[in-house]
Nucleic acid binder design. Structure first.
Lengths: 340, 340
DNA sequence: GTGAAAGCGCTAACAA
DNA sequence: TTGTTAGCGCTTTCAC
């Protein structure tokens, strides 16, 4: 516990000299590898701790051609969704010696490509990334990397290697079925206008298909740009209801703007879910304490993170068809009428 | 654009051979270093792209003893506060060639120590970590690492190297002054019971000092464990008001539970801010669309991230006293009476 | 159970 | 402007 002032960073050699044990054996001790006598082990550990030695993984990685890093690339951190996924990943990686390294693409394919390039240059043990839509160069990089790739969140499409997620198409469709069964007919949609938010788009497509099957069409749409917040939800709701006052249902592309819409409708004294029904998407529990619980779909974020991590860690056999499709579950809440 | 199937990962040598240029010059081109003729440059870039070469930063880092990584260690991702800080950091690092690597400690000093050990073993160019309270071993590791360390969020205490943050003590104190000036006297506190949430603790100490100076004492406290949510804010508020029904003010340790409390009080028909006043902490704009704006203190999260990153990137001179103290600013909102 | 030699893929330093 | 040499700090492999 009397570390020297390190003008030069400490190396294995320093620990070797301090303990009178060869570098090789020091290395064995520090990695719990091979057979080392209790006595030498003790000497080495004491020396390492006394000096304050921190191994150099750069050198170690180069020598062993193995790195305990898992690259995780997500579109955003401020979107409440992704911390949940990361929680699942890190919970599952915790006892594997693997470490997640997080990169953020800001929903930009170009940026995603850069981030991936950067991460692959560290030769990680695996890559987990959100979505199925990537730049051509990114797809090529990943395919050629020779490491396990897990694309998460979405199963509607073709993957590079393994997919873990839900079908957003199906989630949208099931919500449509539910709403129609509850008797709503004049339906509006509020969502992001992000060409790159493919999952939201797929939900909407599935939703509209579900409606169309019963001869119903969306009466109005309201799009917005940028992040989601309660305030934005309010504004959009006010706007769409001004344009189409006789809507009897609003489907939001996420819970945050849905909650904003809910607060707006409560303010305006709408009868919910009688006069108007509302639904969001994600199943964010942060919002549980609102005056009324928003109906929504649980996107299985935590599970998705866990399953993806299990595959990278080699705890799960890769599924034969390379797809792990989880089931999005409907969370009733209080903003949709009971089905008669 | 016809990448070979890589049984063996590609190396500089492959690019060298494919382009007929020496490894060294290939390396120069790929790093934009030194003078290389436009012709060779072109040859090299074409070859690299055709092969799908991704440089190996492990080898590069070992050879150059430099790594473009900045270790960022925070307690949690689900706490809304930290994504904002990360946003500031990554915005500022964007044009520097440095890359943040995020580690999460879950408010556990032991885990923080492990995460730091892991990150330091990659020899990053700098470390940014939340708070001033670390395990002895962690403090030693950081001091001996020989790399720039910036501790963020808090300036009440002694740092290892450089501090960027606000004084939570002062923030608590100023809120006390404000509340008393507005005429509230029967005051309760609702907060986490996390021995490791030092910043919340310091705010509370400052708050109580501010009260004590005017002869006022906290009448009730309500603590909770685990994450913050609207629901928890409701429950805690119900509980504290059941125990101490004549409280006329509630100070919450963060905006999320404060907002839950606000919703509860609205439900119960309390006159806000007449009969009872409320305040939170942080200034999260996610909650902006609530029926009533919660009074709070802006913790300057984004700025803190930016300043910390600037210091690591060498864009700012390190302040002479090694402390960058930002000013927490009071956000009036609608839940505190005007000062008479 | 322990050690010696070789080399991982790249870049610093110097030479041409 | 380009090339050559040495070596970063560790682990693999093999010998003892």
């Amino acid at each position: 516990m009397t570390p020297q002032k390190p003008r030069r960073p400490l190396t294995l050699r320093d620990v070797s000299e301090a303990s009178g044990v060869s570098e090789m054996t020091v290395s064995r001790v520090l990695r719990n590898r091979g057979d080392v006598s209790a006595a030498t082990r003790e000497k080495v550990l004491t020396a390492a701790k006394t000096l304050g030695y921190v191994p150099n993984k750069i050198a170690g990685g180069l020598a062993s051609q193995r790195v305990n890093l898992v690259a995780v690339v997500i579109p955003s951190l401020s979107n409440l969704v992704f911390p949940d996924v990361l929680g699942g990943i890190s919970a599952e990686l915790d006892d594997t010696g693997l470490q997640p390294v997080i990169g953020v693409s800001n929903y930009s394919p170009a940026r995603e490509e850069m981030v991936l390039y950067d991460m692959l240059s560290w030769r990680p043990s695996g890559v987990i990334l959100a979505g199925l839509e990537h730049s051509k160069a990114a797809t090529a990089m990943l395919s050629n990397s020779g490491i396990p790739i897990v694309e998460i969140m979405d199963t509607d499409g073709q993957g590079i290697d393994t997919l873990v997620g839900i079908s957003h198409h199906r989630a949208g469709r099931e919500m449509a079925d539910h709403i129609l069964a509850a008797g709503y007919r004049r339906i509006g949609f509020v969502g992001t206008h992000m060409p790159e938010d493919h999952r939201a788009r797929k939900r909407l497509v599935g939703f509209e298909e579900g409606l169309a099957e019963k001869g119903v069409q969306l009466e109005a749409r309201e799009y917005y740009q940028g992040g989601s917040s309660l305030l934005k939800g309010r504004e959009l709701t006010e706007r769409i209801l001004a344009r189409a006052p006789d809507l009897d249902f609003l489907y939001y592309s996420n819970d945050m703007i849905g909650a904003g819409g809910l607060l707006y409708c409560l303010d305006q004294g709408y009868d919910i879910p009688g006069r108007i029904g509302l639904a969001g998407f994600n199943g964010v529990d942060l919002l549980d304490g609102l005056p009324v619980r928003l109906s929504t779909t649980d996107a299985r974020r935590h599970d998705i993170g866990r399953r993806a991590a299990r595959i990278i860690a080699g705890k799960d056999a890769t599924p034969p068809d390379r797809v792990v499709a989880l089931t999005p579950t409907f969370l009733p809440g209080d903003t949709i009428r009971a089905i008669p």
